[in-house]
């Protein structure tokens, strides 16, 4: 858990300099939607690997939980 926290913290630190390249105050004639499109693509890119591992791990847990359920179900027959 501590390792994951450190990983997240270091990811935040690496991410901060990126902000200064796109710093701009809000004003009229701004379409906030365009920024949201870019941001979600970037964030999805950054979190996809972790999500893949999480999903894979969940599938393994579900597989064994399913096997255990099947075994329990069979025993009750």
């Amino acid at each position: 858990m501590r390792g994951i926290n450190l990983l997240l913290l270091s990811r935040s630190c690496l991410f901060i300099p990126v902000l200064f390249f796109c710093a701009a105050p809000a004003s009229a004639y701004i379409d906030p939607g365009a920024g949201s499109y870019v941001v979600q693509v970037v964030i999805a890119l950054l979190v996809s690997a972790g999500f893949a591992v999480k999903t894979f791990w969940q599938q393994i847990k579900n597989f064994f939980a399913g096997s255990a359920d099947d075994a329990a179900h069979g025993k009750n027959k």
């Binding site: 997240l8 809000a26 906030p32």
Partner: peptide
């Protein structure tokens, strides 16, 4: 220093100003 808030709020705010 919180990746979720940094990305979904701080970075999002800056990018909305820049790309908008």
């Amino acid at each position: 220093l919180d990746f979720s808030l940094l990305s979904h709020l701080h970075f999002h705010a800056k990018a909305s100003g820049h790309y908008g």
